[in-house]
Design a protein around this nucleic acid. Sequence first.
DNA 1: ATTGCATGTCAACAGTTGTTGGCATACGGT
DNA 2: ACCGTATGCCAACAACTGTTGACATGCAAT
Lengths: 193, 193
Amino acid sequence: MTAPAPPTQPRRSDATRAAILRAARERFAADGYERATIRAIAADAQIDPSMVMRYYGSKEGLFAAAAEFDLRLPDLTPIPPEQLGETLVRHFLSRWDGDETLVALLRAASTNPGAAERMRDIFANQLTAAVATFGTDPTTTARRAGLVASQILGLAFTRYVVRLPPMVDMPPEDLVSWIAPTLQRYLTGTPGS
Amino acid sequence: MTAPAPPTQPRRSDATRAAILRAARERFAADGYERATIRAIAADAQIDPSMVMRYYGSKEGLFAAAAEFDLRLPDLTPIPPEQLGETLVRHFLSRWDGDETLVALLRAASTNPGAAERMRDIFANQLTAAVATFGTDPTTTARRAGLVASQILGLAFTRYVVRLPPMVDMPPEDLVSWIAPTLQRYLTGTPGS
DNA sequence: ATTGCATGTCAACAGTTGTTGGCATACGGT
DNA sequence: ACCGTATGCCAACAACTGTTGACATGCAAT
């Protein structure tokens, strides 16, 4: 820490940094934290393994950079209350499509404590905050967010990690119509039904 | 192969084999496949690492033995149709309590292809078979089973692997009353609601 | 008592891992 | 043209991994 960092003037190595990050995300998503080796990531990025260390400090540091993730939850306040579930499923399905960062985080969270903590942060902060915006009883907010997370992560786990055939084959629209009511009940309903 | 195997006459090393298996399940459940080392498992079981190799052939073989798992789904035919969801959630919650085999399988399935395949088998065979016992349209059976798996595994993942606080803290009875209606709808309901 | 086999210990192997330091090269400011 | 520095490659280290083989010990049957 020397200065508050001038708006990050572009470095000559930005292309390399980006290539490393892209390869890292792919490998972490495909193999998980431990099986994704720095050597393999470097080979994918067509650079030397020592460059990874120089730019990201360590494997942990590289993962922290590669797993930077924002759910980008939309503002839920203008959504009609009865469409909240559908909106959320649609958002997550499209958010995952073409961005393997969450799959990387999901795979890594199973074995890497740091990744698990980050996953807790993301869902405890971002999702709970979103659920809190529309006015349900504040004492149930965390619980509702947890239940939503359980179905959302279960969907991601079965479809993108374990690849259960029926979950892989189901068209997004069918997933929406099946799962939206579940989230809807977790968000605005009551236990028991 | 000499004879069709006499009912597995007890070997003098059965205690050792069991100790290895117990230590293996603990380590696989706590650390996942790659971080659970044979040396650590052997140390827990207070034996030499080479014994693991002799009795289980390889690390893969040890995992295959340690992750032998049966969902032990009850016969669902005598259950009143409207109680199917509740019965299933209760069954899974009690099945996981005190048996870390499924957590081991869950953690390992994220990074180990063989473990993922076993997980697919378990849920594709055992769960789909159970869902098929009560007569819904056979063309939707696999799909319903997949959806149930997504919520069940999401519950396990958030509660036992990632340890999302609200999901860890929620009493089993509350989990049942929240999640049972979800499974109920996946099993006997229609998409859209 | 002696043989045969199951059980267990010890040491070492070959490969892979994250990580480090030295050295060449090429860019950018003077 | 010159120099400081950023960028990149190469070789190597130390630690750890699964796995193997040689050797000791003890049980059980002859």
